[in-house]
Nucleic acid binder design. Sequence first.
DNA 1: GTAATTGCAAACGGTTTGCGATCTC
DNA 2: GAGATCGCAAACCGTTTGCAATTAC
Lengths: 141, 141
Amino acid sequence: MNKLPQKTRLTQQRKTILDIVKSTCYHPTAEQIFKLVKKQLPKISVGTVYRNLDVLADQKLIKRIDIPGEPTRFDAELKNKAYFVCKNKGSIYDLKIDSEKLKSLVNCDCIDKIDDFHILLFGTSKDCPSEKGLRKGQLKR
Amino acid sequence: MNKLPQKTRLTQQRKTILDIVKSTCYHPTAEQIFKLVKKQLPKISVGTVYRNLDVLADQKLIKRIDIPGEPTRFDAELKNKAYFVCKNKGSIYDLKIDSEKLKSLVNCDCIDKIDDFHILLFGTSKDCPSEKGLRKGQLKR
DNA sequence: GTAATTGCAAACGGTTTGCGATCTC
DNA sequence: GAGATCGCAAACCGTTTGCAATTAC
């Protein structure tokens, strides 16, 4: 939610960062993105990554996923309305939630307008990944 | 989610911290709690506050409220299932949400069991506090 | 008595920022 | 050329931690 400049530019760095977020099926952290970009642009610095993620998020090209106690992750799939975090392995599954139905669950006359929501569910998944394999939404640690 | 000791003790510090969280109608941060406790126990240190908040949260006597980009807040009202964050003034309103209805909104066969959820709604409140007054749920900044 | 807890202070980790140099439009 | 962005490194800020001293049970 910073002030964007009047005209943003499509630099190599910004393009590469966006491509990486778009192409990963899991939801990488800034640190992970940094490492991945570095393979293509070895001179890039963390600051640049954070600044670009800020810009891209302000432009609504990507979305932040804030999980308490973990570094922020990023998602280029904007239609994901919620995330399910499996306790066992730290996997994250994307959930689509009907915004209108959700709003109807909320009873509070103090609310004028709901612009956005941030929903995390915690629990265990049925087919919880074994030690061996990595699955969609799972971070290597 | 740390390992609690076999027997926890009710120290002056822990009692005071719990009392403060229970008695405030807004949702204080660790820092704010620290300042308030200090009035009663001038020698207390931040570390003690954080450690006690951890213990109390593990004992389910209080609840964390994690709002992206802000320090963690604490709530002694455990029945609050969600929070509404007013963008204009940073006010937080407590919401009760029907857990079962919420779960029915989620369509994902990967989920085995939902233990907990964490819901934040962002928007504007009808009677948004003016510059003059402070209201329930609002932090002085 | 002994395990839990404290105060202190230093360290941590993710993120931000100020700067002069370098790009993009 | 002007403004946006970069790389670098230091700073930031909320939180955690190691340790010797103290306290609750």
